[in-house]
Design a protein around this nucleic acid. Structure first.
Length: 588
RNA sequence: GCGCUCGUAGCUCAAUGGAUAGAGUACUGGCCUCCGAAGCCAGGGGUUGUGGGUUCGAUCCCCGCCGAGCGCACCA
């Protein structure tokens, strides 16, 4: 029971307080259900109070009593509370709690006291923080990032920030596919463009990388090393087999390049890899997306981890030989067919290095490993989890979040995109067109498992209508008002909040109080989009209040209480926007 | 064919199993001699693809059907 002079309660405290009261009543009304889960939800309608409990309806069946009757008995047994102004039974048997004005507005002081830490989850009752890893983007460094990667980047970065803010220790990781055939294809693509610069034209394969950036890299190599890597076109095509199989022809070209260039092949390979990786990293940093670890696939080979991972599977009897290749029996773990881990030519498949990679992640001791993948990889989940289980690991520690595709629309038509053909809109182009803030926020405006139609013309021509400006505008407005006030903002944390009496003020306070709960729910569900929607709602509540009431009124007590509410609103806007990587302009 | 993700207002999208399914946009009509009109207020708009089932209660959970996207490589 709170004393009249009790310190301000935070939102979570109120929830605990009410839960305790209901638990007391429950033990008195139905002690045999004393451990029943007590759920408190925030009603959508203001007339339903600040919190609603559905316990009476949950118990109706086993108690063989009507929900309303149970509710009446529960309410009768509720302990008194200075935080509760009214308890009502409504609808099918909801128990609705309305808080006192003081309890409703207390959140303002709580926000101002916690500042940037308001909403942050922390270890409670000695429960340790979870160590999490979020791996995202991980695009092949074979060309500029496109708008699909952008969605994965925005989602992964926001998710990681959210999980960290919710009280976890988070490592952000990018897996660099620097060891596969795709990199060889990029290297040979650049080399063929390079040869063209020296009038040694080899017909450019349709399945090589077509983008203009490949020509740029060829030009760079020419500037740096002149004709060092030039070989006659006839020599290049000399050994090529007569075949209609485009992939076979491309592989032969790669072999020809390796033969003719010898040691120099690795220079070309390293150059294009470094070039693309540097560009990718810069692109992401400009987008506000930071990684703690850039993990090299090749390092898994260099350290022998891939071989060890496959050998371990072999020793435990999960591998068999067929047609000269080593197959992992993934069907034993729910996959639809078995998968090759080592080809008949001795080369490991991407799957093999991915097994090693995930074992490595687990060895690093994360409580949970979260992979953010494009939706086209969903068929891949079973086999990776299967391989982890077969290796004796707990596959449940791996969580895969799929991000659906982004379809671009320009002038009403879907833009066909192909990485190989180089015909696609890059993330950089998108950022230049609509801005980083709008980009980050727009990507968060739908659930990740929902396909996203991105209308470029709309994003460009109506960028002012983007919801991000709506939220940022609320922030700028508050800054403007505070700048016109001649008092000290630091003192607002202690002001008397009782002048806050309008419905619009209580609504705004309730929204602020919801923030810590939203952080926990969004983190639990891996749903950073919920944060974007919350911020829109918060900005809306503020704009409504701002238009209804004047802040800089003559009465000092009212003025300071309202400014305190505005300041608290600004704080939560800052906390939320920064998690999404969106700036908080003072003016706009 | 099999599997995965989905199907909600004209359009773009929300909704920890809860009360009359909500926002934005578009449309209609109001609000600046007053702290930022990139704002606010009001209005029309829905058989939540469809048919069953579970539940006191289903947009949500289960099954069938229809439709969309993606996947079903010794590519990554």
């Amino acid at each position: 029971m709170a004393a009249p002079s009790a310190p301000a309660r935070t939102a979570l405290d109120v929830r605990q307080h009410l839960t305790g009261m209901i638990r007391t009543a429950l033990n008195s009304v139905a002690p045999e259900h004393g451990l029943a889960e007590i759920l408190l939800e925030r009603p959508k309608q203001a007339s339903h109070g600040d919190f609603a409990c559905n316990l009476a309806m949950q118990l109706a069946r086993s108690l063989k009593t009507s929900p309303r009757q149970i509710a009446e008995r529960l309410v009768h047994e509720l302990p008194a509370s200075t935080a509760v102004a009214k308890v009502e039974i409504a609808g099918a048997g909801f128990i609705n709690f309305t808080l006192t004005p003081a309890a409703r507005t207390a959140v303002v002081a709580a926000v101002l006291a916690a500042g940037p830490g308001f909403g942050r989850g922390a270890a409670r009752n000695g429960k340790a923080l979870r160590r999490l890893q979020v791996e995202f983007v991980s695009a092949n460094p074979t060309g500029p990032l496109h708008v699909g990667h952008g969605r994965g980047a925005a989602f992964g970065a926001s998710l990681a920030s959210l999980l960290a803010f919710a009280g976890n220790e988070v490592t952000r990781e990018y897996y660099v596919n620097d060891a596969g055939r795709q990199m060889d294809i990029l290297a040979v693509s650049a080399w063929l463009r390079y040869l063209e610069l020296f009038d040694e034209p080899v017909p450019f394969p349709p399945n090589a990388y077509q983008g203009g950036y490949v020509r740029e890299m060829a030009e760079q190599i020419k500037q740096a090393h002149g004709d060092r890597y030039v070989h006659p076109a006839e020599a290049v095509v000399a050994g090529l087999p007569e075949t209609d199989d485009a992939d076979a022809r491309l592989d032969s070209l790669i072999l020809a390049g390796k033969d003719l260039l010898g040691e120099d092949w690795s220079y070309v390979h390293a150059h294009v890899l470094n070039e693309q990786l540097t560009d990718c990293r810069a692109d992401l940093e400009e987008f506000g997306v930071h990684f703690d670890v850039w993990f090299s696939e090749r390092s898994l080979y260099d350290t022998g981890m891939v071989a060890r991972a496959v050998a371990a599977l072999e020793n435990s009897g999960h591998i068999y030989l067929q047609d000269g290749a080593k197959w992992f029996k993934s069907t034993a773990f729910g996959d639809e067919k078995d998968r090759v881990v080592q080809r008949d030519n001795g080369l490991y498949t991407y799957f093999a290095s991915d097994i090693a990679y995930h074992l490595n992640k687990f060895e690093r001791g994360f409580d949970k490993v979260i992979d953010v993948w494009g939706a086209d990889h969903h068929g891949y989940i079973q086999r990776v989890k299967g391989a982890l289980s077969a290796s004796g690991a707990n596959a449940d520690r791996l969580e895969v979040t799929l991000v659906q595709f982004v379809s671009l629309f320009r002038e009403g038509h879907k833009v066909s995109m192909s990485t190989r053909s180089g015909d696609y809109v890059t993330l950089r182009q998108l950022r230049d067109e609509v801005g980083n803030d709008a980009c980050r926020f727009f990507y968060m405006l739908r659930k990740c498992d929902q396909a996203l139609d991105f209308d470029l013309d709309l994003a460009k021509s109506q960028s002012n209508d983007n919801p991000v400006y709506y939220v940022q505008y609320a922030h700028a407005r508050i800054c403007s008002v505070l700048a016109q006030w001649d008092g000290a903002a630091a003192a607002l944390g202690q002001v008397d909040l009782s002048p806050l009496q309008r419905d619009s003020e209580f609504a705004l306070c309730a929204r602020l109080a919801e923030f810590p709960e939203l952080i926990q729910i969004a983190a639990r569900d891996y749903a950073p989009h919920a944060l974007a929607f919350y911020l829109k709602d918060l900005a809306g509540d503020f704009h409504s209040w701002y238009n209804a009431e004047r802040l800089l009124v003559d009465d000092a007590a009212t003025r300071e209480a309202r400014l305190a509410l505005a300041l608290a609103t600004r704080q939560v806007l800052q906390n939320g926007l920064s998690l999404l990587g969106v700036s908080q302009p003072v003016s706009m």
